[in-house]
Design a protein around this nucleic acid. Structure first.
Lengths: 156, 156
DNA sequence: TTTCAACATGAAACGTTGTTGCATTTGCGC
DNA sequence: GCGCAAATGCAACAACGTTTCATGTTGAAA
């Protein structure tokens, strides 16, 4: 039986007010996972980029230590522990994002159809859909497609 | 340049009030696609089952005439013409559903984590999310996960 | 510090999913 | 019916994802 640390939602943080990031070792410990070079590398990369990344992008950052099989297992472990979440854009397009510290509420994801970047819209909460009473809801994925600000600006 | 037939939304139909289904040949013609055995088979199967189906399920219904390569191209054609829509449950789980006649508004999809069935919640519209003004939205996918009525009943 | 069980790793091999090229067949407008 | 464009199906390929197994690490208890 392992202890999960739950972050309490404090006051809202301002848009440019960064909090000190926890290091990979602590994140793993809190998730009840053993430390390993692969896992630390993945967490550090996702933390540094501050946005969802594809396997390919992570691979590029990892360099030599990247191993395809280990990568899948690493991501399974990190997802299972709630350290990262998987964003399914299409059945052939998957991205991974670090779960935000602080308030880990369900948020909307945005996919830019021009540059193919995926963004976690942390300020846009998932709507609470009303299904017929005999359905039990456990989760909800929302993916909005469109054109991101930088691509929109580029076309003008 | 092909002509797309747009169905106008008339009065709401009652829950058990079925309208006469168009046949596959007409659907293809309206979609600007050529008639073919594969396409007709897929449309007929989706129409008969009245619910989203996986490739495997469709394959099972098609029998001998199923061909994997043709299937992908068929689904690409049908999706492109707006005759069916693809529901991405997970990167390894894809389902296809016939676009409903009548009101083809964006609707929510439901995935039962017990029986893995996918349902089009035709009466549950996709919420209009408000993103920052510099984002342009073109579409939105909503997938709710949970337990469907029949699985819920089975556990009691 | 040493020991050790549990877990992470990476190589090989395999299965599935999706695509591309090409020769052949089919649909459909003329 | 003719002929062109599109659909089909085969082969081959590429990418994605999993399983098995031998080996290397981690972390906790002796």
């Amino acid at each position: 039986m392992e202890i999960k640390v739950v972050f309490l939602c404090g006051r809202k943080r301002g848009r440019n007010e960064h909090h000190r990031m926890k290091n990979a070792t602590d994140i793993l410990k809190e998730g009840g996972l053993k430390k390993s070079a692969q896992r630390i590398a993945v967490i550090n990369i996702l933390q540094a980029k501050q946005k969802p990344l594809s396997e390919d992008a992570i691979k590029g950052e990892m360099g030599e230590i990247y191993d395809r099989i280990t990568f899948y297992r690493t991501m399974q472990a990190l997802c299972g522990a709630g350290i990262v979440h998987k964003i399914i854009v299409d059945n052939t397009v998957v991205e991974y994002a670090l779960n935000a510290e602080g308030c880990p509420h369900e948020h909307v994801h945005f996919f830019c159809t021009v540059c193919h970047a995926v963004t976690c819209m942390r300020d846009v909460a998932v709507h609470r859909y009303r299904l017929p009473a005999d359905y039990e809801q456990t989760g909800c994925e929302v993916l909005i497609k469109g054109v991101c600000p930088s691509c929109l600006k580029a076309t003008r």
